[in-house]
């Protein structure tokens, strides 16, 4: 049954459904029990499922991940909440060297179905380490799956899919979209739902393919509306899965539009925009009318709140990217030279 709820509530509803479906699902993290999480995603879960299934942990992210691995080793299906994106790095070894590699290390004997929920990205005026976009680190690691949701319905459905997946999944939640409302059915049949590895066409258009995910999907859709006012059809693709990336869906669109813009909040250098642009160039070279364009965060530490508007791509920067893909130069030449030393 469909209900109107926020993206944060939809995540909670998805978790509740996953815990109901499978008694081996446990939720672990900081402040997730009595408080319900700093964003209230796990609100009410401890009261409903008890402190042994919704576990407040000490403030130690490596400890949370390492013990989640042990629980999964034992047969549990842990869902771990990392409170903020910038806090995940102290757990990096447990994620990259342990969680991601354990299956290969044990020749398939050990399955670790751990889901790591991470609020991601900026635009909320937060303190340092609360606004980062670390997707590329995890997408670079074999053995992990990485997803990023943009809508309340996907929040519920993809989270359930991630929890049900036998592989470890890094699950990114766009924190500045937590309060956006939408129609959500938390009980959709996972067998018939689109797989979480599949991209979603969020808006149709024939002139430019605009690829993004998570927090930037809404801005990209705004850009598509603005562009259509000028007669430009922008096709917005919400990747949803960042590892693996559904390059087939992007390629199918680019073969039609001949132009590609990739938008993400994380830094440009070795970001997923580079991966998408390179792969599409390899696959669709003869279909491209222009070089792929990246609209991304700058290669700087995430700036203080009063400056974050310059870091997070906004409507104007995305439209500028669309213009560049269309060969409409909107900026002075200097601003377009992105080569080092140019």
């Amino acid at each position: 049954m469909t209900t109107t709820m926020t993206l944060a509530k939809a995540l909670g509803a998805g978790l509740r459904r996953a815990m109901t479906d499978d008694p081996s699902v446990m939720v672990l993290g900081e402040d997730i029990g009595r408080l319900g999480g700093v964003y209230r995603v796990t609100d009410g879960l401890q009261a409903e499922f008890g402190p042994r299934r919704v576990v407040d942990t000490p403030l130690a992210e490596s400890g949370i991940l390492g013990t989640a691995i042990g629980l999964a080793y034992r047969g549990y299906r842990p869902v771990v909440e990392i409170q903020f994106d910038g806090f995940v790095y102290v757990a990096f070894d447990q994620i990259v060297s342990q969680l991601a590699k354990m299956r290969a290390r044990t020749l398939g004997a050990v399955t670790l179905p751990v889901t790591i929920r991470i609020p991601v990205a900026g635009g909320i005026g937060a303190a340092e380490h609360h606004s980062e976009s670390p997707e590329a680190y995890f997408a670079h690691t074999a053995g992990l799956r990485v997803v990023s949701v943009a809508t309340p319905q996907d929040a519920a459905t993809v989270l359930r899919q991630a929890v049900a997946c036998d592989d470890p999944v890094v699950f990114f939640e766009p924190k500045r979209r937590y309060h956006v409302k939408g129609e959500v059915d938390p009980d959709v049949d996972l067998a018939t739902a689109d797989p979480m590895s599949a991209a979603r066409v969020a808006a149709h258009g024939d002139d430019v393919t605009l690829v993004t995910w998570g927090s930037q999907v809404a801005t990209a859709l705004d850009a598509a509306v603005a562009a259509s006012d000028e007669g430009v059809g922008v096709e917005v693709i919400d990747l949803r899965s960042l590892s693996p990336i559904d390059h087939d869906a992007v390629a199918a669109s680019v073969r039609r539009t001949g132009r590609l813009v990739v938008v993400h909040e994380g830094p440009r250098q070795a970001g997923l925009g580079a991966e998408a642009a390179a792969t599409i160039t390899e696959r669709c070279f003869e279909f491209l009318e222009a070089a792929p364009v990246r609209v991304t965060g700058h290669d700087v530490p995430y700036p203080p709140a009063k400056l974050e508007g310059h870091q997070v791509p906004d409507l104007d920067r995305i439209l500028d990217g669309v213009d560049r893909a269309l060969g409409r130069v909107a900026l002075p030449a200097r601003a377009q030279r992105t080569e080092v030393g140019a």
Binding site: G66, T67, G70, L71, Y73, R74, T106, A109
Partner: peptide, 29 residues
């Protein structure tokens, strides 16, 4: 070897990482 056949994980090279796995597994117990 298969860890479940003998009740012992395979060798861990990252120093100390396995201690947390032991605690998590024990929490599962």
């Amino acid at each position: 070897w298969n860890p479940y056949d003998v009740g012992m994980a395979t060798p861990q090279v990252i120093i100390g990482a396995q201690a947390l796995h032991a605690v998590g597994y024990a929490f599962g117990i």
